[in-house]
Amino acid sequence: MQKIPSHTKARHFGMVIDVDKCTGCASCMVACYSENNVSFRDEESAKMLSLNWIMVYKLTNGESFPDTEVCYLPQPCMHCDGKEFGKPPCVSVCPAVATDFDWPTGIVSQIYTRCFGCRYCMAACPYHARQFNWWDPVWPADMEKYLSPNVSARTRGVVEKCSFCYHRFQLARQKAYHEGRPEEIGEDEYQTACTQACPSGAITFGDLDNPEHEVYKLKQDRYAFRLLERLNTNPSVYYISKRKWVHRMADNYLEGEVPAAFAENEA
C-alpha cells in the first residue's frame, strides 16, 4: 500500500459505459479474451466457473410484452478506489499482497505468481469481477501460438481479473519514454482492448481526473451512475443511462427510495 512516488504523474484511470448504447454484441468480451490470454474450455455456460474479465449482463425492465425493454450492462473489474481511498474491498483482504491498488494509476493489480488461491478477494468483491482458475488452462492444437507475450498465462489455482489492460499502459509509457516525453501519454495512446473493440462506441476510457479526457466530462453526466454505489466501494467505472429502471437495476433501494439522478424529478 504505497503512496504515490513524487516523481510520477498521478492518474486515475476509469471507464464510462453508455448503457443506452451498448448492443450486447460481446465484442468487448472476445477482444478481452484475445488481448489478455484468457483461457477457454469446451463447457463455458456455467458462468461462475468461466473466466470473463468483462461480462455483459442482460437487463430487462420486467414489463410485459410489448412494453418490455432490454439493456446490456458490460461489467469489467470496477477498479474501486475503496471506502478509504486506496483500499478497495479486495485489496485489504488479500493476505499475501497479491492484489494491490496502484496509486499512480488507480488500477487494482493482480499478481498471478503471488496469488496462492485463497479466494478471499472473491468473497470481498460484490461485483463478481474476480474469477478463479479452477482448471489448468489448455490451448489445444497450436492455439498456444496466438497467446500474447504481454500478458502472462495463468495457472490453475490463482485468481484473475480485468487489469484495465495494464500492459498497454506500460507499453504506452515505454514508448513515451523512448520518444523523450516521459509521463506524457496521450488519451489515444492508452485504451483498453474492450474500449477499442466496442463497435457501438459505448465504452469510453481515460483519466477520470484529467479535464481533457472524455471520461472526465462523461462521468459528470446527469445520468451517470455507478454499480452498487451504496456499498461505498467507489468504483472507477461509471455508467450512463437515461432509463430510470436501469438505475434501479444498478443498486439496491428500499421502498420509496429513488435513484439519485431521478430524485429531483420525483420531488
Partner: peptide, 18 residues
C-alpha cells in the same frame, strides 16, 4: 471503420486449433 464483430475478433481461434 474500426469496429469488428465477435467472430472477427475470434478468428485467430480458427487459424490455429482443432
Amino acid at each position: 471503420r474500426g469496429s469488428l464483430c465477435p467472430l472477427g475478433y475470434s478468428s485467430i481461434q480458427y487459424l490455429y486449433g482443432p
